[in-house]
Design a protein around this nucleic acid. Structure first.
Lengths: 215, 215
DNA sequence: CGGCGGGCTTTGTGATCACATGAGGGGATG
DNA sequence: CATCCCCTCATGTGATCACAAAGCCCGCCG
């Protein structure tokens, strides 16, 4: 019953529940304000309330869930100020992560980024919101992993988590079909070793979508 | 039994335990690597294992506690790389927070900061490590509250939390008695409305102590 | 027809218990 | 004297239960 590797079927129940919910939230598979119940979660994952509670509290600590004063659990509904603040945090953290990844980015990484980016474009053309969010985050995470800054990456992921449900609401109604231009700029800056260009491209990519949501 | 205001004696048990442990850790009242047990915590706060577990998991989610693969709980022992990264995060976040607070900083705030800073100097002269950490953080938090950026402030506090036990180890062996020079620079920059100066002063203040710890 | 009150139901909280596992100690052996 | 092994005890995990409070819905009254 011990926790072995990261995603192991034999992991503790609370961890399984936590990971499942986390992925669901980060990928925007739940709508903002959706209510959850401990017993409901327990039923879905075939566990008792105890691990469900632990998973929920952990997610609440990361800002992925909102606990009312009476303990009721729901997905947060973000205000515009909050969204702008989280966008600023994304910019701050991810520009730094990209900058740190730049000197370590060799060709193999850039190739992988281009492949992921092709999938992103595919998701956009298929209007698959969840798929888009997932592959878009994969693009960013792949780059930032090279920064060798786990604490910083963890913070960035926490911000993604908080924005998850809102992102879904955004990309759900934003019906655009053009491929991600900023991702190309990021890749180009990586190839050229152009740090100012990279910082600008990342900042734009991170900020643009959320800007029009908050507007 | 509902959670009312922030620090209420009638707050849920898990919240009381959480807050008590959090304060203890952030203020450096525990040494890095110290072991905790759920039953021990429960005994100390006169609750059962259940609220103790929730408090611990919440703190672990924020990086304030380390859970071994077998679930054992202890204060984290940070590597030098980790410390440097957290210092970089402090710089990133707190420079931004200070910058946002600057246009909103009126005289009353600066007065309060000077008062707090006097207490900081007192703690330094008394060689009271815990008191120093507590009032130093109060100085920073008072300034950053003016930034009106709760998510960003929460992230900064999370970093403080992760550094808590290590900070204690630092200031415990760093036997300096000079008052905080950087705090004066911060106050001066606030008075002058000098944003570049403020950014530099905050960055120095945040970075300097941790630099020599990691060295 | 709308607002309000009361009772029912759902929900979170915390305690307790059975269980499996990992850590630590003591003894035997080389 | 060091090392390894085994046994015991302590610890985390998860299930279940009793309880209190909050939400909700229905009916009643204005």
């Amino acid at each position: 019953m011990t926790a072995r590797s990261s995603h192991d079927a034999a992991a503790p129940a609370h961890d399984r529940v936590y990971r499942a919910l986390r992925t669901r939230i980060m990928h925007g598979e739940v709508t903002p304000g959706a209510a959850l119940t401990l017993r409901g979660i327990g039923r879905e994952f075939e566990v008792s309330m105890t691990p469900a509670r632990e998973a929920v509290r952990r997610l609440a600590a990361e800002g992925a869930l909102f606990l009312s004063t009476s303990g009721r659990v729901s997905t947060p509904e973000l205000t515009n100020e909050r969204i702008e603040e989280l966008a600023a945090l994304r910019a701050l953290l991810e520009v730094e992560l990209a900058s740190r990844a730049l000197p370590r980015a060799h060709m193999a990484l850039i190739d992988r980024l281009q492949m992921i980016n092709a999938t992103v474009a595919e998701m956009v053309s298929k209007r698959d919101a969840v798929g888009y969010i997932r592959t878009n985050l994969e693009f960013h995470r792949t780059l930032y992993l090279r920064a060798q800054a786990p604490a910083m990456l963890a913070m960035a992921e926490t911000v993604w988590l908080q924005l998850g449900p809102t992102m879904r609401a955004l990309y759900g109604r934003l019906r655009r079909t053009d491929p991600p231009q900023n991702h190309r700029l990021i890749i180009a800056a990586l190839k050229a070793g152009d740090e100012p260009g990279l910082r600008l491209a990342v900042r734009s990519d991170v900020t643009q979508g959320l800007r029009l949501l908050a507007g």
